[in-house]
């Protein structure tokens, strides 16, 4: 089964996501236009600047295409900026968001760039030891509601959440060589 995984390529580290999925022999394609998004079976919203990606989504009609994808129950994974855009609530921010997940996020929760870090994370549903997680001006989840489920925490802070076919990580699995989180997402796709 080779489903089409779209990587939202408006802005951010979409090349790293593309390379990671291609390395898993996945049919991954960069998507920039609404019709390209609609043609996908799953979507990744990469790291980048959430305000920039959000404005571009609104300006070029990708917002509606992504919401339609989620209404079809297609798996969507957001990393960092992608997590912020998936959240319904963003603390102290009026910025536009897709608002698909019942979570509240706090932006730049660990501080500015000099506070960016790497750490080992135990992730529910990911076996064979901890995952090295790269956090860059990262957000955290401060509240989960409805059926949103916490998959990982760092220092008691929620950094990975799943709700149905929606997945959000505050860190960047695409920046390391470990592909277990990508595999987790592919399993979501294959069972959807």
């Amino acid at each position: 089964m080779n489903r089409r995984v779209g990587i939202l390529a408006l802005q951010g580290d979409f090349s790293e996501h593309l390379a990671a999925f291609k390395g898993l022999n996945c049919h991954a394609v960069p998507v920039k236009h609404p019709a390209e998004v609609r043609a996908c079976d799953a979507l990744v919203i990469p790291g980048g600047e959430s305000t920039t990606i959000g404005k571009l989504c609104q300006r070029f009609g990708l917002d509606e295409a992504i919401v339609e994808l989620s209404e079809r129950d297609a798996p969507i994974w957001g990393t960092c900026a992608g997590m912020i855009l998936l959240a319904k609530e963003i603390e102290a921010s009026e910025q536009w968001r897709l608002g698909l997940m019942d979570i509240t996020v706090q932006r730049n929760a660990f501080g500015r760039q000099v506070d960016s870090f790497e750490a080992d994370l135990a992730i529910e549903g990911v076996t064979s030891g901890p995952v090295r997680a790269v956090f860059i001006r990262a957000p955290v989840v401060t509240e989960v509601r409805a059926d949103a489920r916490v998959l990982a925490r760092f220092d008691d802070k929620i950094v990975m959440v799943r709700q149905g076919n929606l997945l959000a990580t505050a860190f960047h699995p695409e920046l390391t060589d470990d592909r277990r989180v990508q595999q987790y997402f592919l399993n979501m796709i294959n069972s959807s």
């Binding site: 790293e16 960016s116 750490a119 956090f135």
Partner: peptide, 21 residues
């Protein structure tokens, strides 16, 4: 082990700025 400001953190921020102004 937690490490701050690694080379991956630094280059990573540059990568997050791709495709932008």
């Amino acid at each position: 082990m937690t490490e701050k400001s690694t080379w991956r953190n630094k280059v990573g921020l540059a990568e997050m700025l791709r495709g932008g102004v």
